[in-house]
Amino acid sequence: MPPESDDPAVTSGGRSDPAVGIRICGLNKSFDGPEGELVALAGIDLGVREGEFLCIVGPSGCGKTTLLRILAGLEPQFGGSVDFTVDTDGKPLQSMVFQEQGVFPWLTVLENAAYGLTVRHVPKDRCRAQARDYLRKLGLSAFEAAYPSQLSGGMRQRVNLARAFVNDPAVLLMDEPLGALDEQTKMLVQTDLLRLWEGSNKTVLFITHSLDEAIVLGDRVAVMSNRPGRIKTILEIDLPRPRDALELRNNERFLHLRRQVWDSLREEVVSLESDENRAPSPSGAPLS
C-alpha cells in the first residue's frame, strides 16, 4: 500500500484540498487467456477527486474497460484495493453508461430512462417525472414513446446518458460512450453531457480514445500505458467552464494541452504499433 503522498490526486493536484472520492491502490487484474495468464492491469494507483470529471485515454487493449468494469462491480475478482469514499447522500453509489448497444431495445425511451428507478421500486409516477425531466433536458421529449430502434445513434446515446443520470448516482462511469458517433453528433452530445454534469455534483470517470474529447470534457486527463495498464501521467486541464465543445477546438490553450497529452500517449502508441508490425497480422489501426 503506497503512502499517502504518492496519491496522484494529492501530488498533481492544482486545486486547494480536493477530497478524494475514489481511491484505487495497486489494482491488478489478469485473465486466463488461451495463451496462459494475461495481465490486463498491473498496479493502477489513482485518486479520483470528489466531483471531478476525470478522463482516461490509452492505447487500445491497455485495460481501460477492465478498470471501469472493476469499478462498476462487474469484475468481482482483482488484486489491490478500490475504495469509494464519495459522499453518496443516500443515492446509489455508481452507474455505468455503456456503449450504444447497452440501451434495452425492448423498452421505450421513457422506460429505458426510468430503468434505474423502476428496479429500485420507486413509485411509478416519480420514475416517470424524473425520467421526463432528463429527457426534456436532452431534447428527447417527443420520443419518449419510441423504441430505440427508431432513433438515430446520437439519440440512442442520449437515452443511455439519461438512464444513468436519472438513476442519480454519486459516480458516473462511462466507457467510450460516444465512440460510435460521427464527429458532429459527438460534439452535440458532448455539449449536452457537459451541461448535465455541470448542473450536478457528480464524480465522472470517462474513458475515451479521442484526445480532443478528453480535453474538452475533463478536469484532468489520465494517460495509460500499454498493456499491462498503468497510469502513466495525469494532466490538469485548466480550461475555464462552462465549456463549449465546438468553440474550444480553436482555443490556443486547448491546442497546447492537446499536444501535451499526445506527446505522452504517442510513445505508447508507437511502441504498440511496432509490436504489431512485427507480428504477421496487418498493422494495427491508428488510434483514431
Binding site: 462487474l74 455505468m96 455503456f98 448497444q101 447497452g102 434505474g116 428496479v119 429500485r120
Partner: peptide
C-alpha cells in the same frame, strides 16, 4: 442473451423479479 444486457442489469442492481 447479449452479455451487455446482463451487465446493465447487474450494474443497476436489478432484483430477481425485474
Amino acid at each position: 442473451i447479449d452479455r451487455i444486457y446482463r451487465d446493465v442489469a447487474e450494474n443497476f442492481e436489478t432484483g430477481p423479479r425485474h
